[in-house]
Design a binder for these strands. Structure first.
Length: 227
DNA sequence: AGTTGATCATTA
DNA sequence: TAATGATCAACT
């Protein structure tokens, strides 16, 4: 099969996985060159570069919609930077965290639950001592949470969302949550959004996002790589 | 201003 | 040195 950017979204999960498997072993430099995409020297100003490069090759629709990357397949795409041992170098962003109008939101229909229902993980070498262009794509794998994982995620989500609903968002830190955490998610500290305050009134606070802890994604990678 | 793609860099 | 809190760019 030729290595080239996808012209159309994959029509089946099998096709999507096949496309991803073809990329394994190739470097980001090779992929960027084939797509005629500029390669940054680091990700200081291009934090989402790798994810967008892979989206390009797999045929995901670009843009910022709070849906899965492949809505017709029910699959979410996640690149994850790994060290020399195949373990995660960063936490994994899941989705935006709602801070208001959350009265009717339930775990079963939450954005977190939806996004993580089925994920195509694509590990990529991410050590900073490897030049960006030389970093290689590792073997991809499709994952759906086990009952245990689902339960752990649900527990954290419900605990965190309860705090938010009680107006305690300012007391929520990244230390909360066993596998799922909440951290700021914005261009800088000046960005503010509405949230429920301590007295039930609206307050302004930094936007937040849900992230998967490295321990959690590390277990997925360990299983995948047979460690 | 919201949400996606995430990594950076200071703190503990 | 790992994790938290901060930050960057694109697109809508």
């Amino acid at each position: 099969m030729n290595i080239q950017p996808a012209k159309h979204p994959p029509t089946s999960i099998n096709e999507l996985v096949k496309r991803a498997e073809v990329l394994a072993g190739l470097s980001l430099g090779e992929l960027a060159n084939l797509a005629d995409i500029h390669i940054p020297k680091d990700f200081k100003r291009d934090k989402g570069w790798t994810g967008q490069l892979l989206e390009h090759y797999l045929g995901a629709e670009a843009g910022s919609n709070p849906e899965q990357d492949f809505p017709e397949l029910g699959v979410e795409l996640k690149t994850i930077p790994i060290d020399a041992n195949g373990m995660p170098l960063e936490t994994t962003y899941v989705c935006y965290c709602p801070l208001q109008n959350i009265a009717g939101i339930k775990w079963a229909t939450s954005n977190v639950r939806n996004k993580l229902a089925c994920v195509l993980w694509i590990p990529i070498e991410g050590s900073r001592d490897i030049p960006v262009s030389a970093r290689r794509v590792a073997s991809p794998f499709l994952w759906s949470p086990s009952h245990e994982q689902l339960h752990a995620l649900q527990s954290d989500w419900e605990e965190l969302m309860e705090m938010i609903s009680l107006g305690e968002i300012e007391n929520v830190t990244a230390r909360h949550g066993e596998v799922l955490q909440i951290r700021p998610k914005a261009a800088d500290g000046s960005v503010l959004t509405d949230a429920i305050g301590s007295k039930g009134t609206l307050i302004k606070t930094r936007p937040r996002g849900f992230y998967l802890r490295k321990q959690f994604t590390g277990a997925l990678l360990a299983q995948h790589f047979g460690l």
